[in-house]
Amino acid sequence: MTGSGSVPLDRELRRLLRHGTFAEVLDHALVVRGLSLERVQHHLADRGVSVSRAALSYWRHGRSRPERAESLRAVRVLEEVFGLPPETLVTILGSPRPRGRAAEPGAVDRRRLWPAHSPLIAAMHAPPDGQLTFLDVHEHVLVDERRRLSAVRTRLVVEATADWVDRCVVYLWSEEPTRTELTGMRYCRLGRSRSDTGSGATVAELMLDQRLAAGERSVLEYEALFPSGPELTFYHRRFTRPNRQYVLQIEFVGEVPAQCVPYRQRTLEGPRQLDQPLWIGASDTAHLVRTDIQPGIVGLVWEWD
């Protein structure tokens, strides 16, 4: 069925080739040609091109697009596999999108804020950053009686910036070289995850209850359980994009520091910009509320007597 030349195109495919997106054409061609992603992957491999099934799925649903040289080779092979005229899919793709900060004003490349996580992101073929906007982030951090990080409960209000968004990628870190456990998911379920116990880095996909179209919103919750680690003296969250509101609550079990000091950093290597101290009352909990967060790092730091 694959080919040695173009084959007749159905009416809908001809329309999509004129007015559709790369993802729409790929999805329709797979359906009308009766090919699974596994079969397409084999056809590519037979022609010396290696593309993962996950990458093909992301292309099909518009969560990412082929841009690297090897990926563009795969696109030209796909034209042959589907019996399309040469350069058809390449033309629909158009010029490569700008990468990094230039791709989205005000954004920070996630590899800059999560450098230890970059190999895990690449190994997972994680979807591009920025398909979900975090409108509100609420974190409740529990510090145990030994002054160690015990658990973080997170609630996210998200908005899709693209169609067919069905997952949220989260990044976790631990100061101990062990794996962080994700549990307590609500309105989502755990998908793929990768960990590097040497650096304490974990990347995980949370599969949303429903697939979102651009502009649609959802809520998801999860809890991260941390192994025994060193004495905790700070906690922060890293933002790659602007965020409407961030609420950070740090609850101390047992001994309580006299105060917590809010801070922000533009980068991991940059200096901490300190704000006025937050006094801790009878709840043994420090509350930080920030709005209109810009990309960078926001957190609290404290000292133990």
Rank of each mutant, 00 (worst) to 15 (best):
M1L: 14
T2N: 08
S4H: 07
G5L: 14
G5K: 10
P8T: 10
P8Y: 10
P8R: 12
D10R: 07
R11E: 09
L13N: 03
L13K: 01
R15H: 11
L16W: 08
L17F: 03
R18H: 05
F22H: 04
L26T: 07
A29P: 09
A29Q: 00
V32K: 00
V32R: 13
R33L: 12
E38G: 06
E38I: 11
V40C: 12
H43F: 11
V51H: 07
R53T: 12
A54N: 10
A54M: 14
A54V: 14
A55K: 10
L56V: 04
S57F: 05
W59Y: 13
R60I: 02
S64F: 07
R65A: 15
P66A: 03
S71A: 15
S71C: 03
L72D: 00
E80T: 13
V81Y: 00
V81I: 08
P86C: 03
P86L: 05
T88Y: 01
V90D: 02
T91A: 14
T91S: 14
T91Q: 11
I92S: 00
L93A: 08
G94Y: 06
P96R: 09
R97H: 12
A103M: 04
E104F: 05
E104N: 07
G106I: 01
R110D: 00
L113P: 00
W114S: 02
A116Q: 06
A116C: 02
H117E: 08
P119I: 00
M124C: 08
H125Y: 06
A126K: 02
D129P: 07
L132V: 09
L132H: 03
E139N: 12
D144C: 15
R147N: 07
L156A: 09
V158D: 03
E159M: 11
D163E: 10
C168M: 13
E176V: 15
T178P: 00
G184H: 13
R189F: 03
G191Q: 06
G191P: 13
R194K: 10
G198C: 08
G198F: 09
S199N: 08
T202Y: 06
E205D: 09
L206M: 09
M207W: 06
A213H: 10
A214L: 02
G215W: 04
S218V: 03
V219S: 11
E221D: 09
A224Q: 04
P227S: 09
S228M: 10
T240P: 01
R241A: 12
P242S: 14
Q245S: 15
V247Y: 06
L248T: 10
Q249S: 13
I250A: 13
E251A: 15
Q259W: 02
Q259V: 11
R264T: 01
T267I: 02
G270K: 05
Q273K: 12
L278E: 11
W279A: 15
A282E: 15
S283E: 13
D284Y: 12
A286M: 01
L288N: 08
I293E: 00
Q294H: 05
Q294C: 05
P295A: 01
G296K: 03
I297S: 02
I297D: 01
V298Y: 14
V301M: 08
W304K: 01
